[in-house]
Nucleic acid binder design. Structure first.
Lengths: 241, 241
DNA sequence: ATGTGCTACAATGCACGCATTGTTGAGCTT
DNA sequence: AAGCTCAACAATGCGTGCATTGTAGCACAT
């Protein structure tokens, strides 16, 4: 069950010859289960239960849970164990907004500095993959390529603190990625915009890069609002806690 | 020694009637010591040593260290205990950039929504306090008020995820706050700009709010570059890890 | 004398146990 | 019968011990 099927998260990965700490394994596996939906929002689990399932003692599990709580994935309820945090429409919109903010900044910074050709090529690759996936109507592939594009774009900023934090938000966004993707229109505009952003970065035009991506994200936020309204409650309903 | 003199960090605070967990206390106290400079960058300490100093067992200390490592405050070196992370000029610039990005977004969002009058009043208060501190040439008071202003501005965004993350960065920025404040010119422009931003928020003008703050932050980043160049090495020297 | 290998020690991750505390259910009272 | 109180249990935080592992110092060989 906890096999993290096509898990996209960028966590250190088990490492090749290195042995992973149990605590890190617990962190990675629990987070993976939450992101890929194996642990749905609201799920409650006791520490001993988790420890048994993960085949380790309570100590590393406890440590992992505290870390996950720090990142907002779970809430530790005094006597009921961990509870997987809910993802309200408000949370989804807020996370998307923060991510948009990061990416606009990244696009601007990327255009303002000298970006390695390999990085630009990788961006092109991701866009090409999205195009192909779009034609084949393969949502999974499109998701993967879109995720890759955003990851790369952020990395092009050259700001390690931004990269670190934005990647954390990308992981969080993956919790609702499939949800929203399934309900959005065919994302043809995405690819056109992404290509335009890369073009602006390539010719070193920070103003355009930022503005194009900002406009794109604004459109996406509006579409997201529609999707959320259609999917659930009122446009600005739930609260997480 | 670990008395967190005028510690500005916003961590849950010991809580009144609530009893604090040892693990949280360790996290808070160690982080406080790092932020206020009691634990200078590069300092190495062993877990048993820390546990002794904090009057608790190794378990909660270990947990706290892992959390602090997640946030970039320390690095856990396999056999040498924790080491307080260095703060290179590059780190300082990057953190400042991310923070600027957050605040511009916050200013824009604040102007775009209905901000409670009390929040606006609190912002005015902070600006007034900065003015007074500036006249009295009291850097400590100015620092406190400036920190308060930025905190409040971020909170006005209404985006809880942005608030959470930006506050984490504010804490990080406090590690070098006194350092840079001591070396900057009297920050008269700051107050004028801050007042202009609040004014734009008050009259609900997102465009202006964002643009004014963006320009202000750009100026500050340039001044910061000068300070860093004057203080130390080359404009883009060190690397953290 | 210097370089290399071995040994002893110390730090760390994790398992386990204990004390604490909150919760649940049962029994009693009104 | 319903509500309240109390007692037993279970989860959790933390302290402690053990096994592992990396390091440093010493001795030996060249």
């Amino acid at each position: 069950m906890p096999m993290t099927p096509s898990s996209d998260n960028h966590d250190p990965a088990p490492g090749a010859g290195e042995r992973e700490r149990q605590s890190d394994a617990a962190y990675r596996r629990i987070k993976g289960s939450i992101v890929d939906g194996t642990f749905p929002p609201g799920l409650q689990m006791l520490e001993p239960e988790l420890a048994l399932k993960l085949g380790m003692s309570r100590t590393p599990v406890h440590e992992a849970l505290v870390r996950l709580q720090d990142e907002g994935y779970v809430e530790i309820v005094p006597r009921r164990g961990m509870r997987v945090s809910a993802l309200s429409p408000r949370d989804i919109r807020e996370i998307t907004e923060v991510l948009a903010c990061f990416e606009v900044e990244a696009a601007e910074r990327a255009a303002a500095r000298r970006v390695a050709p390999e990085e630009l090529a990788a961006l092109d690759d991701a866009i090409a993959a999205m195009d192909r996936a779009l034609e084949a109507q393969d949502l999974d592939r499109w998701n993967e390529a879109d995720f890759r594009f955003h990851r790369l774009l952020i990395e092009c900023s050259g700001n390690r603190h931004l990269i670190e934090t934005a990647h954390r938000f990308l992981d969080k966004a993956n919790r609702y990625r499939t949800l929203t993707t399934a309900h959005r229109l065919p994302p043809v505009y995405s690819n056109v915009n992404h290509a335009a952003v890369v073009e602006a970065i390539r010719r070193g035009d920070p103003q355009s890069a930022a503005e194009i991506h900002r406009a794109h994200k604004r459109r996406w936020l509006r579409e997201l609002s529609d999707i959320l309204a259609r999917l659930g409650v009122a446009p600005d309903a739930g609260s997480t806690r």
